[in-house]
């Protein structure tokens, strides 16, 4: 297992107007592992996730200090090429959100923007991406049906495939299973464990059992601060802080 740090968060602060949402966050995220961010609602874990691919740029009132480095590149520097950066750091959202297009067009969306591919190459890329999320065998004969006609689980897999098609290095997942039933959740978790062989994954989740099942490293957030971070096994068995223990044992949160 590689231990190279791919994302380095240095004294990162984020404000919505006057509200101090993230306080002096310092975190290191190792390559090709799953890092889970847990904590009660409003603790800032999703905000941090959205900061890692600069999705918070869309909100006018956000101010930040500190820095986040991806591959040693400071992502809040003015000179950053935002487009190629966002390609490298992809995001899966809470609710599956395929475009109202066909299955094929959803996956082809990214490659069409970024790569000059022949029809055959594009098809190969779509097939590879769908294979990577175990959708190909189910959907290879119905690539032209609307993505909206798929089940919730298939939609979420499709959204992941759409992301894989632009060859990212990091996958940010914002509660990717919260709209799915338990069986679908289990299968998507299996997918996440498979994907970490090739991708670095950061997952925000409300579901502590999920964090315990899928992640290698867990960070516990509370009120915009990282309370504790460490190997998942340690956090869930012998946390070093009392607040963490209270949360994971269900006494709090």
């Amino acid at each position: 297992m590689s231990e190279r740090t791919i994302i380095r968060i240095n004294h990162f602060n984020l404000f919505y107007d006057q509200f101090h949402a993230l306080k002096d966050i310092c975190l290191e995220i190792p390559e090709k592992q799953v890092t889970a961010m847990i904590g009660p609602s409003g603790c800032g874990k999703s905000t941090l996730l959205r900061s890692i691919n600069r999705m918070n740029d869309l909100i006018d009132t956000v101010r930040i200090t500190g820095q986040i480095l991806v591959d040693d590149q400071p992502i809040y520097d003015k000179g950053l090429n935002l487009v190629s950066f966002r390609k490298k750091v992809g995001m899966v959202f809470q609710r599956p959100n395929p475009f109202p297009l066909s299955v094929y067009e959803n996956v082809a969306f990214g490659p069409r923007l970024h790569m000059k591919l022949t029809k055959k190459e594009l098809h190969g890329r779509v097939q590879q991406s769908l294979e990577d999320v175990d959708l190909w065998s189910d959907l290879k004969d119905s690539l032209d049906i609307s993505a909206l006609d798929l089940s919730g689980e298939q939609q979420q897999r499709l959204c992941i495939a759409r992301l894989l098609a632009v060859s990212p290095e990091v996958l940010l997942m914002d509660e990717p299973c919260s709209a799915l039933d338990p069986n679908a959740t289990q299968r998507v978790e299996e997918l996440i464990r498979d994907l970490k062989n090739d991708y670095t994954i950061v997952i925000v989740t409300h579901n502590m059992a999920q964090a315990a099942r899928v992640s290698d490293q867990t960070a516990y957030f509370y009120l915009g601060e990282v309370v504790e971070i460490g190997p998942t096994e340690k956090i869930f068995t012998t946390p070093s802080k009392k607040e963490t223990e209270d949360y994971i044992t269900g006494r709090f949160g």
Partner: peptide
């Protein structure tokens, strides 16, 4: 957001 996250 998805479109931007895909690098558009």
């Amino acid at each position: 957001e998805v479109s931007l996250a895909l690098g558009a």
